[in-house]
Design a protein around this nucleic acid. Structure first.
Lengths: 235, 235
DNA sequence: TTCGCTATTTATCATTCGATAAATCAAAAA
DNA sequence: TTTTTGATTTATCGAATGATAAATAGCGAA
């Protein structure tokens, strides 16, 4: 009746892994560990989960902080690899379909307990990488969405988005994002059909943004840099 | 040339405060301290900020954890005092105006660095009080908004909101909420005019939700519990 | 002023933390 | 097999942590 569980206090003959495989394994499991415990989780508890002793960590990472940076790097880069930009701007397909597909795959990547918790923990530390990620979302996603919406509404699509347009896109994007937070961080009941949530959010955004654009930016007015003017629709 | 700064290492004659005043002062300043440092902030550093010695904390709170619970209580209750529900359901005023006013005052209460950070830190701990707060938002705010929207659209307003309706309200609400996160947690540049952000979000939501409701729930269909059906507008 | 109460401080303990040095042992090289 | 290499462990350090006990000092009551 021996406990076969690895890394229990029972003496276990330790296997050896090649250095870079072990290193990758450390980073992957450390990601889940810090997602659970926060970055204040202890190196001993981490090592216990890894099935090794604590000092071994320092053979692979010069300090706990360096290990955490590796976790950042892998987590933040994870959802950024597939070919967003092309598919988002492929005007041969309807904008609704493009946005639905984009948010479907994007949220497939980030709507995990691990990703979201690491993101929130690191965001609360005010790290540069977090600012960088926010700027990526703004420049690579939201700016493009705004331009596509302008095109769809028959408006001139050149020029940077106004602050108001960007803000509306942020509100839309954040609304979808927070669905993941509610589900995986707060573990609150949500509408289980994620695709429908995205579809409804898109319906609301596209219907609303068209109306707002139509009421605001069509009339004679300098087309760019009209941000701070209180030209709001229907109020 | 003596440093007059309180609580510096220089010997300072310590004033005595009445116990409950001191206690309140501790909680208030501890809130800001934990908002800055996270709940792993040390009791010594906290005491230094309070201008007292560390063991004194244990005269007023049996443990660090109990102090933190007091912080939760005050923070979570802070934005819940004014008379939401009446003003939100006062149908003598236009729904847009009511929602604008509600979100204006609500965000005045919660859009502070301190409130938002305590909220996020506590949310990541999976505390009951956080779940409670989420349920308050759902039942006291979003459910009412959905009902008012139904009424505005000329639909029957009785019966609980469908999961889809609630989800749309969540996406709207979260979009506004995340404006505060972006501004005070990520310290990212946002549209400075908060009122305009709310107004635009409202425009989009009201325009979109009207259209979606009109396209979906008007036709012959069992009016309640139509959640999971893929009856979406214009797709 | 003196006394007594208690708010506050000083001193200290037991853990836990990140990190380092030295010993050990598995596996490749000879 | 024997030797060598380095991956992994054991042992340990110093600092920081939450918490407690005892000493001190401010302030109202007598």
């Amino acid at each position: 009746m021996r406990k076969k569980q690895a890394s229990q206090s029972a003496r276990v003959k330790h296997k050896r892994l090649s250095p870079d495989e072990r290193r990758k394994d450390f980073i992957r499991k450390a990601t889940e560990f810090f997602a659970d415990e926060g970055f204040n989780g202890g190196t001993r508890e981490l090592a216990r989960r890894l099935g090794v002793t604590q000092p071994l960590l320092y053979r692979y990472f010069p300090s706990k902080e360096e290990l955490i940076k590796e976790v950042y790097r892998t987590v933040y880069l994870e959802p950024l690899d597939s070919g967003w930009e092309r598919r988002l701007t492929d005007r041969s397909r309807p904008i609704r379909e493009r946005l639905q597909q984009f948010y479907s795959t994007y949220t497939d990547a980030i709507f995990t307990r691990t990703w979201l918790r690491i993101y929130l923990f690191s965001g609360l530390k005010g790290l540069d990488i977090n600012r960088w990620y926010v700027s990526v979302v703004r420049d690579k996603i939201l700016t493009r969405i705004v331009k596509e919406c302008r095109f769809e509404a028959g408006l001139p699509a050149q020029g940077k988005p106004t602050a108001s347009e960007l803000e509306m896109a942020w509100v839309f994007h954040s609304g979808i994002f927070y669905y993941g937070i509610r589900k995986y961080i707060y573990e609150s009941p949500v509408l289980e059909d994620k695709e429908k949530m995205i579809a409804d959010a898109l319906d609301v955004y596209l219907a609303g943004v068209t109306k707002v654009f139509a009421g605001v930016e069509k009339p004679v007015k300098s087309p760019a840099k009209s941000d701070r003017l209180d030209a709001a629709a229907g109020r």
